[in-house]
Simulated assay, not measured.
Amino acid sequence: MSKKYDFTHMSRNELLETVNGLIHSGDLTLDDTTSLLGFMGSSPLLKVDYDGLPLENGDVPMNVFEHIKASMEGARSRNETTSIAGLQRALDALMKFQKSNIAAQA
């Protein structure tokens, strides 16, 4: 049985560490998780337009599933079918490791 995680309350840094660990253990592939790169870690690249506010802290918990769903909606509005498919693949992959059975279909 694989370890279970709570992606509904996980920071960007924790997501990066978790996904890397799951890839290294063979439980996930790069293809499963490429769409998550923008959600992981704390990087100056997360803030393209400087608005005078500090960069988002990579240790602040977020709901990864909600971020994926919002990204899917944005991709749908732009008719980006490849992005939608990649995000759905990432969502499905993470659901296998989610602690509880939550509805995460977008």
Rank of each mutant, 00 (worst) to 15 (best):
K4P: 01
K4I: 04
K4H: 09
K4W: 06
K4E: 12
D6T: 06
D6Q: 07
F7S: 00
F7G: 02
T8R: 08
T8G: 03
T8N: 06
M10H: 03
M10T: 02
S11D: 05
R12G: 01
R12N: 00
N13I: 15
E14A: 14
E14W: 10
E14L: 11
L15M: 11
L15A: 04
L15H: 02
L15E: 02
L15Y: 05
L16V: 09
E17S: 14
E17A: 15
E17N: 13
E17V: 08
T18G: 05
T18R: 01
V19Y: 04
V19G: 02
N20Q: 13
N20L: 13
L22N: 01
I23R: 06
I23K: 06
I23Y: 05
I23S: 00
I23T: 08
I23P: 01
H24G: 06
H24M: 12
H24Y: 13
S25E: 14
S25V: 09
S25T: 12
S25N: 12
G26Q: 10
G26H: 10
G26E: 12
D27N: 04
D27E: 15
D27G: 03
D27K: 01
D27Y: 08
L28D: 03
L28V: 14
T29A: 10
T29M: 14
L30W: 15
L30G: 15
D31Q: 14
D31T: 09
D32P: 06
D32E: 10
T33Y: 02
T34A: 15
T34V: 14
T34R: 15
T34M: 13
L36E: 00
L36H: 00
L37Q: 08
G38C: 11
G38P: 01
F39W: 05
F39C: 03
F39Y: 07
M40E: 01
M40S: 04
M40L: 13
G41E: 00
S42D: 02
S42E: 02
S42Q: 14
S42R: 13
S42C: 13
S43H: 13
S43E: 00
S43G: 10
S43L: 12
P44W: 15
P44T: 04
P44S: 09
L45C: 09
L46V: 07
L46E: 01
K47A: 05
V48Q: 07
V48F: 08
V48K: 08
V48M: 08
D49E: 14
D49M: 12
D51K: 15
G52V: 05
G52I: 06
L53P: 04
L53F: 14
P54H: 10
L55A: 10
E56M: 13
N57G: 01
N57P: 02
D59K: 12
D59N: 15
D59L: 12
V60T: 08
V60Y: 14
P61R: 08
N63D: 12
V64Q: 00
V64K: 00
V64L: 05
V64S: 02
F65R: 00
F65Y: 10
F65S: 01
E66Q: 09
E66M: 09
E66N: 07
E66G: 02
E66V: 06
E66S: 05
H67I: 15
H67A: 09
H67V: 15
I68V: 07
I68F: 03
I68K: 00
K69E: 07
A70V: 07
A70H: 05
A70N: 03
A70Y: 07
A70G: 04
